[in-house]
Design a protein around this nucleic acid. Sequence first.
RNA 1: GCGGCAGUAGCUCAACCGGACAGAGCAGCGGUUUUCUAAACCGCUGGUUGGGGGUUCAAGUCCCUCCUGCCGCGCCA
Length: 626
Amino acid sequence: MSSLFFGNFNTAAGRDRWASSCFHRHFPNSELALKDRVSSIALMEIGFNMAEALERRFAAVAAEIEEFGEGFIPDVRPADPRFGDFQANGVLPFAKRTGRNPRNLAEILVGRIKGSSAGRFDVTVAGPGFINVTLRPAVLLEWLLAYGTERDLRTGASDLYRNRIVVVDYSSPNTAKQMHVAHVRSMVVGEAISRLFEFAGARVTRDNHIGDWGTQYGKLIYAYKNHLDQEALKSDALEELERLYKKGDALCKEDPAHLEQARAELVKLQRGDPGNLKLWEEIKRLSEDAFEEIYGKLGIRFDFHLGESFYRDKVDEVYAELLEHGIAEESEGALVVFHPDHPRFRKQPFIIRKSDGASNYASTDLATVLYRVREWKANKLVYVTDSRQQDHFQQLFLTVERWFAATARPVPELDHVCFGTILGDDGKAIKTRSGDPVKLKDLLNEAEERARAIVQEKNPGLPDDEKDDIARAIGIGAIRYADLAQNRTSDYVFSWDKVLSFEGNTAPYLLYAVARIHSIFTRMGDTAEIDERQATPFETEQEQNLARKLLDFAEVLKMTVGDLRPHVLCTYLYELAGDFSGFYNADKVLVDAAGTRARRILLCRRTLLVLEKGLHLLGIRTLKRM
RNA sequence: GCGGCAGUAGCUCAACCGGACAGAGCAGCGGUUUUCUAAACCGCUGGUUGGGGGUUCAAGUCCCUCCUGCCGCGCCA
């Protein structure tokens, strides 16, 4: 494997483990890092990932050379097209470490590699010791012939996370509250990551960890009992529940007597009072129905909806074990965990049981880890939440690590996949004109409406129901893509003009690129009889650019999945669409020469395949025409 | 106070845990269509990567320092 991917694992394990990062990760099992020491792979066997194949090849050749030996990492990566198809930069740091002349070393290595390249690629030394590799056009063609279907791609990719049992914890809204714009990133990113994991060979469980057992229920039940508007509840349950919560909250603030009663309702609920429990179930059901509407629009389906309430009888075991092993302690009446070796968390407590004896989200999160590992045999847990919860997850992960070590359980790999805030034009968290949070259903509806208007304008001749369908795909796709195309760790500025534009790195541009290729095939009629094996090697600059870009899919997928950063895939798809446009503009597909025609059709087919697969992995539905 | 994240072209964003002249899109300017969707493509203009030091063959990236913004930090999730 190239260092691009596994380099992440290696360096992460070795770096200052207290250095907090948004992508917080623990690596209990180092054996996962290098399953493939195999260097006996035949030269340039048509592997899925050409950069990896070269990496292995270079390393194997170097191992035979006295000046290099074992510790050399070639560091092969896709190159700037100016220099070739791939570049290996590893000689420079190696030369530095060993005190050699980098240029000389590179030339020695290149000399040996040339001898075994079998005429399949050219390799040269450039600058201070960069090694540039250019594949022969026939090799590009071979790869494209070998990876011709969705299944082929999946097979190629499925080594990345084979044998991993992953739980993705995303969306996770609170009951009795509407979903707002702030919730969309967790859903969109979480779903994309789940699909990517599956494609990469993992067994994925999607778990919606709903916030259904919080302290807010006291106030809500109190207000529900005294101020419910039945009509309002019928017309829009969540609006009414939200109103009731605010009402309850306001009452408690203005008069301690109300607060007392609200607390009493909570205690009754937690002790299992049948009336309150029934009410709670009703609120939960209403909430989940409303959530389902949104999930339906986004095409998201969970395997489980095990909310916090599910763990309410599972926290005592956690308290007992943590106490027994001296990990948790009593402090100011609460049960807390300190991490004595951590500069900050030796003072900042992780409160796992409140002083009134009630559980909180730390308690249930701990119980949840145990459940997922014990019941589902999960070896990797991924949490998709906003960055503000970084401290919480760091403390959670540290606690789990110590707890599981003390109880001789396998420690799962734990990831907090965090994300930033969606901002409005003013650079602050997006709000409506009146200053309220933007409701997610309103955002999605507006996206469809705006997309519908665009379809109407650009393609008025289509049937109405198809226009509606196209508008849904574009509208929802645009919202999703805008979210994914941005580096998730940073905040981003939302703008309708930007997300719905047909120019630039947007969903409409990519969907159009897909529709355009579909239309090429529609126009050509039945192309099934066109034999790809008649294709002759690529000749024009545009053909070669496009072919090379298609090969990069493997490496891009690895990077995307390795860092869990979907925008890497987005950028790639955008560039691929651009290379296709360049090709399509410069080179006529339907020419008379059979070999040329076959290879250009091949490029169209593969571009369509990769674009559609990529967009589907991101959770975006593609269209045949628009 | 402690900590996290960020500051890159007029605007919105990239830059693959140190690599080649910092790249796109939009906006601005100029081209391309009797030819497969112009919802496209090509070119030009635009940068002291917040400031200042340092590390080395090489720094937007690592270290120190300062400035600015957002966000956490004992019983919400």
